[in-house]
């Protein structure tokens, strides 16, 4: 297969772009959800700490969109803001709302859901980045090395919250278990490549779905041991597979919000 400076075959390029959209949209949507939490975390010090993680993550999204821009897919800001829901390739998990209510009114966000979603997601991302460091597309491998550097902190942060809350009061345990159930329901497309599965798995860009799933499960063994629980099974990708552009209403409303200003005039300098 070819690397950055060579001419990419159409099949390879298609697989690469699809994978990059999955990575970029995942990080963009989950960091958008993180940015809605800003100012509302359970504790001021935590608000500051977790905002850094949202910023890092959006920074990663920007790097993936830039790789797409370099491939001629369009301007990074257009890719992030102007694509319709059916063109988005993120996992459904990344687009889910933080809890009840719209952020401009008086939302009731669920911290247990934030902890579980972010921890499980970050571990999945870590497994992907570890694989991408060996990607045969050099620019992506280099990006993965950079992204990986910031994941140590993200993982430690969410793992600490995960273990501490699951080892605390009955109410916290109940809420955390409900959150685990909710997150796992949407976990089916996290490691899915959707309809591009064969093309992506044969491209040499990244490991196959099953290998990544195994990596996630083995990394999760220890934290689950700390809370005396079993690692949940990853469900099969459901009919609603974000990788194929199947999304919830929650994505549509997220896109309306995040592009509200940019859409006023995408040609203008902001």
């Amino acid at each position: 297969m070819s690397s950055g400076e060579n001419v990419l075959s159409p099949e390879y390029k298609k697989a690469l772009e699809n994978l990059l959209f999955q990575l970029a949209d995942d990080d963009f949507l989950i960091s958008f959800r993180g940015s809605e939490w800003l100012g509302l975390a359970p504790h001021i010090e935590e608000d500051v700490a977790s905002s850094s993680i949202s910023q890092d993550t959006m920074g990663h999204a920007a790097m993936f969109y830039t790789l797409l821009e370099d491939l001629g897919a369009g301007k990074a800001d257009d890719l992030a803001h102007l694509r319709e829901a059916q063109d988005r390739r993120n996992s459904v998990l990344a687009e889910r709302v933080n809890g009840e209510g719209y952020y401009m009114e008086t939302p009731k966000y669920d911290w247990a859901y934030a902890v579980v979603r972010n921890f499980f997601y970050t571990q999945a991302k870590k497994v992907k980045m570890d694989s991408l460091r060996q990607s045969n597309y050099k620019p992506l491998a280099e990006t993965a090395v950079k992204v990986n550097m910031e994941l140590y902190y993200h993982l430690l942060h969410w793992k600490t919250w995960f273990i501490q809350l699951l080892n605390s009061t009955d109410e916290a345990k109940r809420r955390m278990n409900e959150a685990i159930e909710l997150v796992m329901k949407d976990f089916g497309d996290v490691f899915s490549y959707g309809d591009e599965k064969t093309a992506i798995e044969q491209s040499g860009l990244i490991a196959g779905e099953d290998q990544l799933k195994e990596g996630w499960k083995s990394n999760m063994a220890l934290p689950f041991e700390c809370v005396a629980m079993k690692v949940p099974d990853i469900p099969e990708a459901s009919a609603k597979n974000g990788r194929n552009g199947d999304h919830t209403e929650e994505l549509a409303s997220a896109l309306t919000t995040l592009s509200e200003v940019y859409r006023l005039d995408p040609a203008a300098a902001w």
Partner: peptide, 14 residues
């Protein structure tokens, strides 16, 4: 913050 127009503005205002 979630509405900031570009990736750069979103990051900066965050």
């Amino acid at each position: 913050v979630p509405k900031a127009p570009t990736l750069h503005r979103k990051l900066a205002i965050m």
